[in-house]
């Protein structure tokens, strides 16, 4: 501690892009982001091997075995590591009181939320392509899917990752923690959905996980299936609802 402060030149007003860059830096400089992306990439790529070759089969009902491609939940499992990226981006604001620093830097809550949302969208899009692409290439190389089929599958899976990521992001902003959204999003398909589907398949198929599986064309049984466009619409509705609620609550609660 030696010198007095020096002047800082005025380089013009603060733009939305400045806030987005700051949010991107926040996400990029969290070690958890890279750990989670590495886990997702590894899981997605490893699952592509049995999916393409059918060398691993899973025990089903009646002692029969089925190809892993019949189990959409297993193939979609890596997304629940992936959604930790937006969860840490949002919930991390409330660790160490960073949100107060953020709001001092960006006092306009609308701009703060919008910048964060845009940064998360950008990261999720790029990251989803990077973690999903190797698995698709593996499936195409080993499974012989044609280019159109592979491309369509890739864009659908990236869209699914993006939308579930937005659901998780909105959820984390609402509850201001990283644990609850991750726990709930994992418990829903693993515990709640299997219990609920026998009682009310009409409701179960509207849950984010099941609607995503329908959108990807791999529903967990015909009674849970929605048309693919309907599945997409349902997941979009979940994402819009969670992000919209988080935005409204941020304006009210942190305002």
């Amino acid at each position: 501690m030696t010198a007095a402060p020096t002047g800082v030149p005025d380089t013009g007003g603060i733009r939305l892009t400045d806030l987005v860059r700051a949010e991107l830096t926040k996400i990029r400089t969290l070690p958890a982001t890279w750990i989670v992306l590495a886990l997702t990439l590894a899981a997605d790529t490893l699952l592509a091997l049995p999916a393409a070759t059918d060398v691993v089969r899973i025990a089903g009902s009646g002692g029969r075995t089925a190809a892993i491609t019949q189990f959409g939940t297993v193939l979609l499992a890596p997304v629940y590591a992936f959604v930790a990226v937006p969860v840490f981006a949002a919930g991390g604001e409330y660790r160490g009181g960073q949100v107060r620093v953020s709001l001092l830097a960006a006092p306009d809550r609308n701009r703060f939320f919008l910048a964060k949302l845009l940064a998360v969208l950008g990261i999720l899009t790029v990251a989803a392509i990077l973690v999903v692409l190797p698995g698709h290439l593996t499936r195409r190389a080993l499974g012989g899917a044609d280019v159109a089929e592979a491309t369509g599958g890739l864009s659908a899976e990236v869209t699914a990752y993006l939308l579930l990521g937005l659901v998780a992001y909105g959820f984390a902003m609402l509850v201001r923690t990283v644990v609850t959204p991750l726990a709930v999003l994992v418990v829903l398909p693993v515990l709640v959905s299997p219990l609920l589907r026998g009682l009310s398949p009409e409701v179960t198929r509207l849950l984010p996980h099941e609607a995503t599986l329908s959108f990807l064309g791999m529903p967990e049984g015909p009674h849970l299936a929605l048309d693919r466009p309907v599945g997409l619409s349902v997941v979009v509705a979940w994402a819009v609802t969670f992000v919209g609620a988080a935005w409204a609550v941020t304006l009210r609660r942190d305002g």
Binding site: A22, T29, Q98
Partner: peptide, 20 residues
């Protein structure tokens, strides 16, 4: 304050970026 897992320099970097 900062998120504990972030490096000190990165904490200051994002703050600086946010206000040009």
């Amino acid at each position: 304050g900062p998120v504990p897992e972030r490096r000190g320099v990165d904490h200051l970097a994002w703050i600086a970026q946010s206000n040009r």
